[in-house]
């Protein structure tokens, strides 16, 4: 994992005595450090502080009162539901894709890698629009999903009246699409570096494909996988663009937390808007702490087992 390597290098660098190459004049060093700190302050610390001060501006009571609003609670629930579906789905897809790409050779492999990267390259708003175009009422599949128009589809399906766009399935689909690369992208370099020798060894010893995966591959990638899950989860909960297009902004029904923040803010309900934002900010901080813990744990496991 590239980030882990840099992390380790940074630690090594800190422990070693300052080398000749870094003996610049003090004013050069301090002004460079100063620029970096001012930048960090303005772009990271200040906004984060602003979120919490704004949320608590009218007192702690009003802050907590913001979360008693039914629509806000629905938004929180929907966000967790979406993440609870999107993250496991992408763990399965991501592991399967990484396993397939790194352990086998086949035609169209580079095309598959490119496809996995597509959600990173495409603007989230476009991702959302794609789903509207495919599943929307005027879209390719829209008419087939509309109850009553196609009796030949069978009664059961007609009765379901499946709605994708402006409903929860659309939000989940858009979120899965946007967060698709996180797990796979995290695992592919790791699994490539590990090679296929251990899997081959397991196969010669009589292990089945599933046993090979569960007993040999999975333990080797668990920290990388955990890291991918954390990032995927953060993005799934925080996604705005794609979800905004497919959600329809129905209060209490299809608003996720980021969308709820926008609505509250536009209604000049600043305390509530920043209160919900503070939840997302805390999620981000928990993510960072977990990420650091995993990186540390991962470096430890590499140090002892590699």
């Amino acid at each position: 994992m590239a980030t882990t390597v840099t992390h380790l290098k940074a630690q090594l660098g800190a422990a070693a005595p300052a080398s000749r190459a870094t003996q610049d004049a003090p004013w050069v060093r301090w002004s460079l450090i100063g620029v970096a700190l001012v930048f960090l302050g303005f772009f990271l610390v200040l906004p984060l502080a602003a979120v919490f001060t704004e949320a608590l501006r009218k007192g702690i009571a009003l802050y907590f009162q913001s979360f008693t609003d039914a629509d806000t609670l629905a938004a929180v629930r929907l966000t967790f539901l979406t993440a609870a579906i999107a993250v496991p789905a992408n763990v399965v897809f991501g592991v399967a894709a990484a396993w397939c790409i790194t352990k086998f050779n086949f035609k169209g492999k580079s095309l598959l890698i490119t496809l996995i990267d597509l959600p990173f390259a495409v603007s989230p708003v476009i991702s959302g629009l794609i789903y509207v175009l495919v599943f929307g009422l005027q879209g390719w599949l829209g008419p087939y999903l509309d109850a009553g128009t196609h009796p030949w589809l069978g009664d059961w399906l007609n009765q379901q009246d499946i709605k994708v766009i402006f409903a929860v399935p659309g939000i989940v689909l858009a979120t899965i699409f946007v967060t698709f690369p996180f797990v796979a992208r995290e695992l592919i370099p790791l699994m490539q570096a590990q090679g296929t020798d251990e899997e081959y060894a397991a196969i010669t010893l009589g292990a089945s494909g599933w046993q090979t995966f569960r007993r040999v591959t999975l333990p080797n990638i668990k920290w990388g996988l955990f890291y991918g899950v954390i990032l995927c989860n953060a993005r799934a909960m925080g996604e705005f663009g794609a979800v905004s297009v497919v959600s329809g902004h129905i209060r209490g029904e299809t608003n996720t937390m980021p969308l709820q923040v926008e609505i509250l803010y536009n209604e000049y309900n600043f305390v509530a808007a920043f209160a919900v934002s503070s939840l997302l900010a805390m999620l981000a901080m928990v993510t960072l702490v977990l990420k650091s813990l995993i990186e540390w744990r991962y470096a430890q496991s590499r140090a002892t087992h590699d």
Binding site: D197, E198, Y200, A201, A202, R215, V216, N220, H305, D306
Partner: peptide
């Protein structure tokens, strides 16, 4: 295997 391929 050449590089042992032990399960690490």
């Amino acid at each position: 295997f050449q590089h042992y391929a032990l399960f690490r």
